[in-house]
Structures are given as structure tokens and as C-alpha cells.
């Protein structure tokens, strides 16, 4: 756990117990200078409330959109972001690094 952060995993559990649709996004790989370390979490509910961070803000919008699909389908998704990637035009990392984010449903 990274210190001084909101307790994202506790929120994921309590949100799900309240009956909300919940997805959990996790940074699983980074290259170069990435803003958030491997293991960082973002939890998203079906009304796009979220807590935590996977990139310090750069790609959260894309991840939150993908979370909606993952909550609907139940199928996990591996997303990649970085300057060398075409998605960088939509959601790039200002620091020049790359990250992979795993998005899964809490069920």
C-alpha cells in the first residue's frame, strides 16, 4: 500500500456491499517515468464516482469510461497508455512514460 492514500480497496468493498456496480483499475506495468507506481488503484462505480488514481489524472477519464463497459460485461480489460501509442492523442501521459492498467469488475 502506498502511504497517505485514500483506502481505495476498503471503498471498493463497501461500495459493492451497498449494491453499486463497481470496477477496480490497477496499474500492472510501467515503463519510463510513470506518475503512479505499479499496484496503484482507482475504484469506479456505475455512476462514475471514483476514488484513487492510476496516473495522477492523465488517463483517468479513459479508464472511467472503460470501467462502465467492464461493469456491464463482467469481462476484464487490459489497457495501455503512453506517448508512443495512438491513444496518447486522446489520453497521453505528460511525463513521457507508459502504463498498463487492468480493469476488472468487483462481483
Amino acid at each position: 500500500m502506498n502511504v497517505g492514500e485514500d483506502d481505495v480497496l476498503a471503498a471498493a468493498e463497501s461500495w459493492r456491499r451497498e449494491g453499486r456496480g463497481v470496477a477496480l483499475a490497477t496499474v500492472v506495468e510501467t515503463w519510463g517515468s510513470a506518475p503512479r507506481p505499479v499496484g496503484s488503484h482507482l475504484v469506479i462505480d456505475d455512476r462514475e464516482n471514483f476514488l484513487g488514481s492510476v496516473s495522477g489524472g492523465c488517463v483517468e477519464g479513459e479508464v472511467i469510461a472503460a470501467a462502465g463497459e467492464v461493469i456491464d460485461s463482467g469481462v476484464p480489460k487490459l489497457m495501455e497508455f503512453g506517448v508512443a501509442d495512438e491513444t496518447a492523442w486522446k489520453a497521453g501521459l505528460s511525463c513521457g512514460g507508459m502504463i498498463r492498467v487492468y480493469v476488472e469488475k468487483v462481483e
Binding site: M1, L9, A10, A12, E13, R17, L24, V106
Partner: peptide, 14 residues
């Protein structure tokens, strides 16, 4: 992630 796994994880952390 299954809710029971998440709950067990949170228990270990606590």
C-alpha cells in the same frame, strides 16, 4: 475481483 476475495484481502490488511 470477487467480493469475498476483496473482503478477505481487506481483513488481512486490517
Amino acid at each position: 475481483m470477487r467480493l469475498d476475495l476483496l473482503a478477505a484481502l481487506n481483513e488481512e490488511r486490517a
